[in-house]
Nucleic acid binder design. Structure first.
Lengths: 153, 153
DNA sequence: CAAATTAGTTAGCATAGCTAACTATATTCA
DNA sequence: TGAATATAGTTAGCTATGCTAACTAATTTG
């Protein structure tokens, strides 16, 4: 056990209230933008795994499974689906024949970029009702959240 | 067609950037708190439907399906699972024998409250590294997002 | 080189999503 | 009123996504 931070102390009421609001906003926000993904014809797990490959580069199956917080057999089937749709390319590691190197194909990259563009533009179109000062507040909040997420052990 | 809002105009660059940051923060935040749900032994769709029943009160199957943005056959099985676990109670509508009234059981309500508490406390414990002024910014951002979500057609 | 470890797959189960087709009840209207 | 239509849910059957247990194949270790 470490004596790090605040993992085990009861948070104050204000912090709980902020957590509550944040949690609820995140849920509803994602639920709405997620609808855009239907246009891809690709399931959520495959889309998410593909996004790791596109943004973080090639990975072995085990690394992908860890990144997606999923067990290897699950990732094995997700990868099989992506390969069937030609969205990824797989090569064997010449050093270690057990390992596979998985990377996005160009088809996969462009599909993912489109999916991402649809999500972001959908959200952005709804943010455009905001005053500049409100947008600035959101941006500050995002920076704060990035720090929180980075410190999340 | 309406000439409402900004649904179809290309958002400005700043708005797109804010949307991007928000989207990413929401994804990572929920991915982390979601891990707490494992302790419930109940699947995510069942947990989410139960939360509607607990926070918005009794619903018919069709209303629940609409609230969860899912088709009736899907909700039919989710409800069957919840009933099998005694987390909900179902009665027939005396006015219209086709309709069912679904409400959380007390077991369901307490399970949900515990799940929710775990999520919120997990998030709050990580927010507690923040200075009061940062927490205030987050709270303002949450209010702004609530307005955005309310205006989301 | 035999034993142990590691990477990934296969089999089999549960949940969660869908559409199509069904049952049962209510409503409409000729 | 009674036949046609509409509505609420269910059933069947498909796919995708999650798991564990048990397997194969390759590498590392003793």
């Amino acid at each position: 056990m470490s004596k790090v931070k605040n993992k085990n102390i009861a948070p104050r009421q204000e912090t709980l209230a902020a957590a509550d609001g944040l949690h609820s906003a995140a849920i509803h926000l994602l639920r709405r933008v997620r609808k855009q993904d239907h246009a891809t014809g690709v399931g959520p797990a495959q889309l998410s795994a593909l996004s790791v490959l596109v943004f973080a580069g090639p990975k072995t199956l085990g690394e992908l499974a860890a990144a997606e917080q999923v067990k290897p057999p699950t990732m094995s089937r997700i990868v099989a689906g992506l390969e069937r749709s030609l969205l990824i390319e797989i090569t064997r590691d010449p050093e270690d024949a057990r390992r596979m190197h998985i990377r996005s194909s160009s088809k996969g990259a462009s599909l993912l970029q489109q999916a991402r563009r649809r999500r972001i533009e959908s959200l952005a179109s709804h943010l455009s009702i905001l005053a500049p000062v409100e947008l600035a507040t959101l941006n500050r909040a995002v920076d704060i959240l990035k720090n929180v997420l980075d410190a999340w052990h």
